[in-house]
Each structure stands twice: as C-alpha cells, then as structure tokens.
C-alpha cells in the first residue's frame, strides 16, 4: 500500500492505496465520484477522461499512486449538480448526448479545447473540432450534436469577448 495525497475537486485527502489501483477506481470508490466512467479500461474510448493538474488524462491508464500531490478535476466539479457550465448547457441545447455514459469524458476532453480556442479568439473549423474529440467514442449521437455544442459555446465566448 502507498500513502498518497490527492486534491480532488478542491478537497485534499490523504489516503492509502494499493499500487495497482487505477485512478478511475480510486475516484469512483474513495471519492464517490461516479461521474468517472470506465468504458474500455484500455485507453481507447475516452470515457474516463479527467483533468490531472489541469490537463485531460485517461484515468484508466493512470495509477492513483502516480498522482501523489497532484490535483484532479472530474465532471462533478465542472457545473455542479445543475450542470451549468456553458459547454454542458450547449450539450443540452444541441442534443450532444443520449445515454450519457460517454458524456463526462467528452466534457472533460473538450473544456480545455474550448478554452484554448476562446483564448486564441478563433472559431475552429469542423475538422479541428472533430479531431479534438477523436479520442472519445460516442455510440449514440453520431457526434453531430457534440460538434454543434462545441461550435455554439465557442461562438458565445467569442461574442462575449467581442462585447467586453
């Protein structure tokens, strides 16, 4: 067993974990963050994407032991129980989800992309948006609603920035 300190969604905890425990399992079991979904457990579907020190990371390819002293964000921290983050709202309005299983992974993968585009003050083309989500599999939506949600939220951000 290994003693680690994790800061998860603003809460810092010291805990003891077996070396082999995947970050995904530790988040789900020790932190009760059931929004972390495991879709393939071999790094090929993106469902388990979380932010490790601010960057997207597959939590099924990460051992919790490797995360000592690091900061983790999961979908639960993004827009609260009301799912109020602009990207979450855009997923709702553009029907970017159906069964919802892959959704937290898409949200966590795409938030940094949306922020990056907003910071660069540009609307990515369709191909770039699709490339940004190419590590995530959605079996329900056919991706179009997700692409539209990303476009919508970047558009809103650019408009807001233009007004400010």
């Amino acid at each position: 067993m290994i003693e680690i300190t994790l800061e998860v969604n603003g809460e810092t905890r010291r805990l003891s974990v077996e070396s082999r425990r995947l970050l995904a399992d530790v988040l789900r079991q020790e932190f009760n963050l059931s929004g972390v979904h495991i879709g393939c457990a071999h790094g090929a579907c993106g469902c388990c994407t979380v932010h490790l020190d601010g960057k997207p990371r597959l939590s099924c390819l990460t051992f919790a032991a490797q995360c000592d002293g690091k900061s983790v964000r999961t979908v639960e921290s993004v827009g609260g129980v009301g799912a109020d983050h602009p990207l979450q709202k855009a997923f709702r309005s553009e029907h970017g989800l159906q069964c919802g299983y892959c959704t937290p992974g898409f949200i966590m993968t795409l938030i940094p992309f949306v922020e990056e585009m907003t910071a660069e003050r540009r609307m990515p083309d369709e191909e770039e948006i699709r490339e940004a989500m190419s590590g995530n599999i959605c079996r329900c939506t056919g991706y179009q609603g997700i692409v539209e949600a990303v476009r919508k939220v970047i558009g809103e951000n650019l408009e807001e920035g233009a007004q400010a």
Partner: peptide
C-alpha cells in the same frame, strides 16, 4: 519503467504485461 503509460498500462490492464515492479520515471 513507466512514463506516460499510454502503451504499458493497457497491456497491464489486459494482463498481457505483468511487471512486479514499476519504476515511475516521470
């Protein structure tokens, strides 16, 4: 050794690789 884990950990999860010790070089 383990670095990014993008190739090794899938193999470990599938139990196609089973090192007894992982040395984290990150």
């Amino acid at each position: 050794p383990i670095a990014g884990g993008q190739s090794l950990v899938p193999m470990m999860n599938l139990r196609l690789a089973r090192p007894a010790h992982l040395v984290d070089i990150n």
